[in-house]
Design a protein around this nucleic acid. Sequence first.
DNA 1: CCTTGACCCTGTAGCTGGTGCAGACCCTAC
DNA 2: GTAGGGTCTGCACCAGCTACAGGGTCAAGG
Lengths: 142, 142
Amino acid sequence: MRDTAASPSPGRPLTRKGLADRAGCGIETVRYYEDAGLMPEPDRGPNGYRLYGEEDVRRLGFIGRARRLGLTIEEVRGLLSLVDGERITCAEVRETTLRHLESVRARIAELRRLERTLADVSARCSGEQVPDCAVIDALMDG
Amino acid sequence: MRDTAASPSPGRPLTRKGLADRAGCGIETVRYYEDAGLMPEPDRGPNGYRLYGEEDVRRLGFIGRARRLGLTIEEVRGLLSLVDGERITCAEVRETTLRHLESVRARIAELRRLERTLADVSARCSGEQVPDCAVIDALMDG
DNA sequence: CCTTGACCCTGTAGCTGGTGCAGACCCTAC
DNA sequence: GTAGGGTCTGCACCAGCTACAGGGTCAAGG
């Protein structure tokens, strides 16, 4: 792992909201990822408050970016276990990524078929104020 | 509504499974749509069994096709209330359809951006058995 | 007549990926 | 001292189903 120029972990620890803000997610989401085992159990202050460091910001950012790329929680968990285990290889990561790329392409193809159907069906619709519609007929008698 | 050449409603009523099979969905789904108010409360036989007719087959088929086109339950409910109210106009249906078409196109555009990002990121991946991966770096330090 | 197996009924819990709320505590500033 | 923010926990909720438990019913076969 490359080190960022920022301060190392226990400079001044972040609260849950601080972490959430830094990573651009909600505080409940942090807890959810913790429950789901994607984020480790953090240290606690004397008042029981969670304390986070820069590592957590990076990790939560990783999760967020992966999720925004559409990876499932399980896929993210897989990548994180590679990272955590230090036994990460580029080949393994590539496999997850390409598999996901395939599924994205499949979803695009599916949506394009859908788009055509919707365009076709709505083109047959006169759009007038009449109680008779080709869309409804198509759906009812399809 | 156009009449189909099939037998009218109470020829020999269908059971829940019969209806589900005809419409190509599971029997639990039928109950779910009933609870959700998309399907009407059916008549019951003396044993309390639900009894369905051809109208129900058509309606459930309508719901299934609309769902397969990606309409939400709420959108389907909207269309059905137009159908039920008999005050259906082509213009109203067209509006739902076009709005949905827009959202499908937006999803396609979003997925295409995603596809490019994934393709880019995986192209930077050597795919070798080395403990260092451009994908992970991109996600960690993005 | 009895059993087997398929079906039906209801209520309820689970799934994914969070979001939000209640009720309690804590901490800081004014 | 009190107002406001923050934090803690546990829980319920969203879509859109799916599945299971624990019972009842029914038709066919032996």
